[in-house]
Simulated assay, not measured.
Amino acid sequence: MKISKITTFAFCVTACFVSGVFFVSCGSSAVATTPVVEAEKPLVDEPVVEQPEGVVAEPTVQAEDDEYSRSVGGISVSRDTFAEDKETILRIISELDVIMKDPGSTKSYNAWVGYVDQESVDYWKLRKNLQKAEKRLPVKGIKLSSLQDYFKNVFVPARRGREVSEIRYISDTYIKAIQVQGEQDIVYYYFNKINGRWMVHLPPIDD
């Protein structure tokens, strides 16, 4: 009788052990499949974040159109010519910025004269015109005896450190280079196109 009870007990324990292993095994298989399903989700979500091509570029195109319209006004100038002229003039101004770092140098003055049109050179070499400029200087007591004095005491202080960002056509061969401040255009340079080359123009003083 005792042996029969022991045998029955051993059978029950064995059956429970086998059932437990089967249950754990099934549970493990169910858990193992979960990471595979989660890993696939980002692949499905990626296309949702893509932006249509060209959407970002629209504001830039609109801004360029506005600047072109502001710059040419009623002057007949193509977009390609406008872009080329602006690039050339901003490059010249960058070169002048380097020259203006040492306005007291004769080397700087000679380099600057090479950018100025002959009409301006002839006008501002005259003593009577330099005297007119003397009277209008904000700092009194400065003497302008030569074009080099004009370069050092008038041209450079009025332009050094300024940021020119746009151009305005007066004609297809005459341009103002300006800094835009709010709704105001501040003119820092005039340029004449002479024999295909943009030259700095120094306007005469009105009598």
Rank of each mutant, 00 (worst) to 15 (best):
R70L: 10
G73M: 11
V116P: 04
E95V: 05
S78D: 00
V77R: 12
L90E: 11
I93N: 06
E87I: 06
A111C: 03
Y115R: 00
L96E: 13
T81Y: 02
K107S: 04
K101D: 14
S94L: 13
V72W: 04
W112K: 06
P103F: 04
I99Q: 04
G73V: 11
G114L: 12
I75V: 15
S94Y: 13
S76R: 15
D102A: 13
F82I: 05
F82N: 08
M100I: 01
K86V: 04
M100E: 09
G74S: 10
E87W: 13
Y115E: 01
K86I: 00
T81K: 14
Q118V: 07
S71D: 07
D117P: 05
M100G: 08
G104W: 00
V98T: 14
D80H: 06
G104L: 05
D85M: 03
V72A: 08
S108K: 08
D85K: 09
K86R: 13
D80V: 09
I75G: 03
S78C: 01
L90P: 01
R70K: 12
S108T: 06
D97G: 11
D80E: 05
F82P: 02
A83F: 04
V77S: 04
S71K: 08
T106P: 02
Y109C: 07
D102Q: 11
S105P: 01
R70S: 12
I99G: 13
S76L: 10
V98G: 06
P103W: 13
S94G: 13
S76V: 07
K86F: 03
T88D: 12
R79I: 00
A83C: 03
Q118I: 02
F82W: 14
S71R: 11
A111F: 02
S76E: 10
D97H: 09
V77P: 00
Y115T: 02
D117H: 06
V77H: 05
Q118C: 00
D97M: 01
V113E: 00
M100T: 09
I92E: 02
S108N: 06
I99D: 03
I75L: 11
V113K: 05
D97Q: 09
V77W: 07
V98S: 08
E87A: 15
V72K: 13
G104M: 03
A83R: 10
A111W: 00
R91M: 12
Y115I: 01
S76A: 13
V77A: 05
K101Y: 03
Y109Q: 04
S76D: 13
Q118G: 01
T106E: 07
A111R: 03
I93Y: 07
P103Q: 10
E95D: 14
S94C: 06
V116S: 04
Y115V: 01
R91K: 15
S94I: 09
V116E: 06
T88Q: 15
G104I: 00
A111I: 02
S71W: 12
S94R: 15
